[in-house]
Simulated scan of single mutants.
Amino acid sequence: MVSVSWCGRHDGKDALRAQIWRTLTAHNATHRDPVGHIPNFVGAERAAERLAQTDLWQQAQVVKCNPDSPHAAVRLQALAAGKTLYMAVPRLARLQCFVELVAAELHGVSLGEAATMEGAMSHGKLVAFEAMQPIDVVVVGCVAVAMNGGRTGKGAGFADLELAMLRERGLVSATTPIVTTVHDLQVVAAADLPMQPHDWGLDLVVTPSRCLVTENHHPRPGGLDWSMIQPEQLETIPVLQMWSQLRH
């Protein structure tokens, strides 16, 4: 078993992530060592282009995307199309834990630079939940996905936590589409991908070669489940600390 940060919370998911990382490495399907990361897969740009061709994407005006490297191409597609883009601050390490980017406001900054995680943090505007618009499409990073909507990230729980917080504040709903782009090798059998009550399922999976509409029947959490908050999350995520204090 590969030992990485955040492992040990679910043995089945740990084993699946390790298997996917080994498979991707064996097939030279990533641009860097994927272990411990959302894989920066070969073909990410093509998958982003394929996502951008979907009606779901074209109808969306506001997109939320994760900050991981393979989704820089998705963030670029959003900016190039004139959409409002929200990117989560890595590890939610700021009290204003999202960055807002709009192409028209990036004076003198190339969209390619702004679409990188570093560029977004440098040139975007930090925003609190109260300043955000309702989100039309959410893009999450995944290590493995399944056709029943199952997904797992790298194990830190940030994607599910971000979605729960956005739901808590009315910025995503029970019907907001949740999508991802991955390599074809990251698609696994549903039986191999265990889902938990706090997990958010996927509605659409896009690979460099195909668009896969899932059979997602996982019930969506109505907001934060404080019983699932990890001690290290409460210690390191300022907005959780603030909300926790307001609860008491």
Rank of each mutant, 00 (worst) to 15 (best):
Y86I: 04
L106K: 09
S110T: 15
E118M: 11
R91V: 00
P90T: 03
Q96L: 12
A115S: 14
H107N: 09
A103Y: 01
V109K: 09
V109I: 15
E100I: 01
A104G: 08
G108C: 11
V109T: 07
A114E: 05
V99I: 15
M87R: 15
H107T: 06
R91G: 02
V109A: 04
E100L: 11
E118R: 15
F98V: 06
M117N: 14
A114Y: 04
S110G: 13
M117L: 06
P90E: 11
E118Y: 04
G119N: 04
A93E: 11
A104H: 13
L106R: 10
A103L: 04
G119E: 10
T116A: 08
P90S: 08
E118F: 09
S110H: 09
L85H: 05
H107L: 07
L101G: 05
G119D: 10
T84I: 13
A115E: 08
R91C: 00
R94V: 01
T116L: 05
A88V: 08
M87L: 10
L92A: 09
M117H: 01
A114H: 12
R94Y: 14
E118D: 13
R91H: 13
L92K: 04
G108R: 06
T84E: 03
C97K: 02
E113R: 12
E118I: 02
T84S: 01
R94L: 04
Q96R: 15
V102D: 08
L111Y: 12
G119I: 10
E113G: 00
L111G: 12
R94S: 12
Q96E: 14
A93M: 09
A114Q: 01
L95G: 00
T116K: 11
L92Q: 07
S110F: 12
E113H: 02
L101F: 05
V109M: 06
A93F: 03
A115L: 05
F98E: 05
P90F: 12
G108Y: 13
G108D: 09
E113Q: 13
F98C: 12
M87H: 06
Y86E: 04
A93Y: 00
G119R: 01
M117C: 15
M87S: 14
V99M: 14
V89R: 01
A88H: 02
V102Y: 03
L85S: 03
L101H: 01
L92H: 00
V99Y: 04
V109R: 08
L111N: 04
L106N: 07
A115Q: 10
M117A: 15
A104N: 10
P90W: 06
A93T: 01
L101W: 02
M87E: 13
A115G: 05
V109F: 08
L85W: 07
E105Q: 15
A93L: 06
L92N: 10
A93N: 11
V102E: 11
A115K: 00
G119Y: 05
F98L: 14
R91W: 00
E118S: 14
E100V: 07
T84Y: 00
L95A: 13
A88E: 04
A104Q: 14
M117D: 06
A114C: 06
S110I: 12
L95S: 10
L101E: 07
L95P: 03
G108V: 04
A103P: 10
E113I: 12
F98M: 13
T84F: 03
Y86R: 00
L111V: 01
A103T: 05
A104R: 12
R94C: 13
L92R: 03
G119P: 08
G108A: 11
M87D: 03
G108S: 14
V109D: 07
